[in-house]
Design a binder for these strands. Structure first.
Length: 274
DNA sequence: AACAGTCCCAACCGCGGAGCA
DNA sequence: GTGCTCCGCGGTTGGGACTGT
């Protein structure tokens, strides 16, 4: 059958946008709003494909876009989120106000890939007092080697999980120990390195906590609140627009799993009563 | 100064999901 | 259920800018 092209490419401009084109597009969207990208070029009088207009707007012309100078905090957050989400640039960008998925993707590919690969990324996070943060959720352990068919990312769409990965067992009081990955099972916790399954798949499996998508988690107010609470020892608040970097600490994961387990149990009870 | 190699990033491309008729 | 359109996403590319020789 074949997919129809988004637009006829004949007679359309390609390549870099001129300031005149930018002006036309910006003014059109200011008046008519975003959307209807397919018809937008014709209506606005632009010789561009609708997709090209959308991309230009989202990545360049949109108000409140931050450009360049990705801070070390933002970099740290990108690395952490990438560990969780993989190449889900739009989700990662959603946690970085003013940043576009394209920019983050480019930054990752040009700067962070090498750093992470070489293991040069050393977390040295300080709290407001200037003291180094305890390495609570800092992944100082090495993630299991993965083959090309596996992934250490959480697929945020349609992926259910049955285990949770903690960097410390939630009730481990021996905070001086190096953080180790722990998995939550129905009857307790097991170090990930003692679990044969986890070595083949670093997936965080949330089956037991209900149909929670990580994207929902990351976009939820609860997540932000819990990030706030777990930020540091002196309980400094942290907003998503903060220059500081949120940490998914063991306390955060503990709180979150309690919340999601509760809602799962509630939904299970509801289902059974029907 | 000239050239080659590398880096960076805006833009393009193809695919898949959502929604609708 | 099927086919179509629209939209958004992620991978890739092309070319200008920068750096080294």
């Amino acid at each position: 059958m074949g997919r129809s092209p988004c637009c006829s490419k004949e007679g359309l401009n390609r390549g870099a946008w001129t300031s005149h084109e930018d002006k036309i597009l910006k003014e059109y969207i200011m008046v008519h709003g975003e959307g209807k990208w397919r018809n937008l070029p014709k209506r606005a009088g632009l010789k561009r494909c609708g997709k090209s207009c959308r991309l230009r707007w989202l990545n360049y012309l949109r108000p409140n876009i931050k450009r360049g100078n990705i801070s070390s905090d933002e970099e740290d957050l990108i690395i952490r989120l990438h560990k969780l989400l993989g190449n889900r640039w739009s989700l990662i960008a959603g946690r970085l106000p003013g940043r576009t998925d394209n920019e983050i993707k480019n930054y990752w590919n040009t700067n962070l890939v090498k750093k992470v690969k070489d293991g040069h990324h050393q977390h040295q996070i300080t709290n407001n007092t200037g003291n180094p943060m305890p390495p609570k959720a800092t992944p100082s352990f090495s993630a299991p080697k993965l083959d090309s068919n596996s992934s250490n990312v959480v697929r945020t769409k349609a992926t259910k999980c049955s285990k949770l990965l903690f960097l410390d067992p939630p009730n481990n009081n021996n905070s001086t120990d190096q953080p180790r990955p722990f998995l939550q099972y129905d009857n307790g916790f097991l170090p990930a390195d003692e679990d044969k399954e986890i070595s083949t798949d670093f997936l965080i499996d949330f089956n037991n906590v209900g149909d929670i998508c990580l994207s929902d988690l990351l976009n939820s107010d609860d997540c932000l609140n819990m990030c706030d609470l777990s930020w540091n020892n002196n309980q400094q608040p942290l907003s998503p627009c903060s220059d500081q970097t949120p940490i998914f600490s063991d306390q955060f994961l503990k709180d979150w799993t309690h919340t999601t387990n509760t809602s799962f149990l509630d939904s299970t009870a509801e289902t059974q009563s029907q």
